[in-house]
Amino acid sequence: MGVRNILPLILLLVFVGILAVVGFIVYSIVQDVGKNTREKMERKNIAFTRDGMKVQVREIKDEAYKDRTQSVLVNMWNHTSFPAYKSRLWDMSGSSNAAEQDKRK
């Protein structure tokens, strides 16, 4: 009769052990995924804290900021056309203005 009483106890301990191992594996995987995700987000300047999520601004040196801004403005100016605008100082169409200047004199 002693073996019959001990067999369910042994099966219960084996079952609890298996559940503990599976739980530990799941816990390890979840922690690893969380760590990898946190590292990737930190590379993009996003930090997770207990209070929530913080987005940090990357520092751009003043000279680099000015260079980018000037580049955008120059590109806009170079790709803009003024079809109805005729300047007295220069010809935006690229044709020679010398003939018109000779007529005025």
Score class of each variant (00 low, 15 high):
6 I>N: 10
66 K>E: 05
80 T>E: 02
39 E>W: 01
7 L>K: 14
62 D>F: 06
51 D>S: 13
5 N>F: 09
77 W>E: 04
48 F>K: 10
38 R>T: 05
77 W>L: 12
60 I>E: 08
71 S>D: 11
2 G>H: 09
58 R>A: 09
12 L>Y: 07
91 D>T: 10
17 G>Q: 07
96 S>G: 05
13 L>G: 00
36 N>C: 00
104 R>N: 12
41 M>E: 01
23 G>E: 03
91 D>I: 07
24 F>A: 15
51 D>A: 11
64 A>D: 15
2 G>I: 13
95 S>R: 10
103 K>G: 03
25 I>Y: 05
3 V>R: 13
23 G>F: 01
3 V>C: 09
35 K>W: 04
99 A>C: 00
68 R>I: 14
89 L>A: 10
53 M>K: 07
23 G>M: 06
26 V>K: 09
67 D>V: 11
12 L>I: 09
8 P>I: 05
81 S>P: 03
77 W>I: 07
79 H>D: 13
96 S>P: 02
58 R>F: 03
19 L>F: 15
5 N>G: 13
65 Y>I: 05
22 V>H: 03
11 L>N: 14
11 L>K: 15
85 Y>C: 03
15 F>D: 10
55 V>T: 10
38 R>L: 05
84 A>F: 06
63 E>L: 05
55 V>E: 00
31 Q>G: 00
48 F>S: 04
7 L>Q: 12
60 I>A: 08
